[in-house]
Design a protein around this nucleic acid. Structure first.
Lengths: 189, 189
DNA sequence: CAACACATGTACCGATCGGTACATGTTGTC
DNA sequence: GACAACATGTACCGATCGGTACATGTGTTG
């Protein structure tokens, strides 16, 4: 019960941070919007940074689980899965609650490389890279690691563009670029 | 004199915001680090947001001027100029004071689409898109607009990746991807 | 019922937030 | 030198920041 209540707390805090930013969201607002008392909040999390870190950890799990599941539902071959990333991105962008990537935003507000929140953000991106590198390695791409890194760069760019300029066609055009990169990697001249 | 002093003020504020973030930087710190008094600061800028907006406007000018100049120094044909973007990005990443893109960070802290700081950030990206669309239009690319948007997505992804994961090889690998995209756009099957 | 451990809400802490009132230079003009 | 116009520094405003002290429930165990 304590664990699940904690998770509910984290989930609500996630929404609030995602919509308002980290520094811009005070503990008073969090306490009010989550419904718990301040004492209870600080019993679960020693500091605000601890709370944010817990939010990032939960978000990392949930996002990667969702991404992997959707990709493997949509595509079976590794080649198709690499491209399906961008279809899933499109689904994400279309959601009403799409507010950009929380890890990009966290690294924007906590820039010091040694800051736990930046470390956690970098770790999230690293885990995604591991996943896609493994997929790429199952293709006949000449340099699977390079291909994975390039596709993930495209992914970050699509997210930033969708958040900043609007979502229209972004995922579709990113997918087209991904197709070109994939075909070139498979059939080099 | 007043104008140039104002510009100096903006320039110093830029550095401080770039290194510490917007919400995390208080006016007291800005006043202390820029050397002016608080009264003088508030005579030049009515509010903190006004100051940030002025910082973004100056940064927009300086960054685009620098980017255009370097690209045109490095390359003459439109095809080469599209690729030179990524060489210039590499130069930027190598700088000691590289701290990511201020406009991405501003849009992370001020998410409301109607917020002047987000508007200014989107406008910066739009102006870059106009510039590269014009270059792409001078190539034989089938869909120059698409190519420009894809290359700029790659650019944003490279910036985010360099800021979050480290700069190593990022610009070079982004350029390789750009080469593939460019060649495919020029010589479609 | 008594005694205890623990969860909760509230009132409050010093520090800092963005922003201003006001007293004190400093300057140009006559 | 007198005076107006403006620039400056400082002290301060109410609000909010992250975080805590403490008084008041609320079971749980004898």
């Amino acid at each position: 019960m304590s664990a699940s209540k904690r998770d509910v707390l984290i989930q609500r805090a996630f929404k609030i941070f995602q919509e308002n930013g980290f520094h811009a969201t005070g503990m008073d607002k969090l306490v009010k919007l989550t419904g718990v008392s301040k004492t209870a909040m600080y019993r679960h999390f020693r500091t605000k940074d601890d709370l944010i870190l817990a939010v990032l950890k939960l978000r990392d799990e949930q996002f990667r689980n969702w991404l992997v599941q959707r990709i493997e539902e949509l595509a079976q071959t590794p080649e198709q899965q690499l491209l399906a990333l961008f279809d899933v991105l499109g689904e994400w962008f279309e959601r009403d609650d799409f507010k950009g990537c929380m890890f990009i935003k966290a690294s924007a507000e906590y820039q010091d490389d040694s800051h736990p929140l930046k470390v956690a953000s970098a770790e999230h991106k690293r885990l995604l890279l591991v996943y896609f590198s493994n997929i790429a390695a199952r293709t006949k791409a000449q340099d699977p690691g390079l291909l994975a890194r390039q596709l993930l760069m495209l992914k970050e760019g699509a997210i930033v563009t969708a958040h900043l300029q609007g979502i229209e066609d972004v995922a579709r055009e990113a997918r087209k670029a991904a197709e070109v990169l994939l075909h070139a990697a498979l059939a080099p001249e």
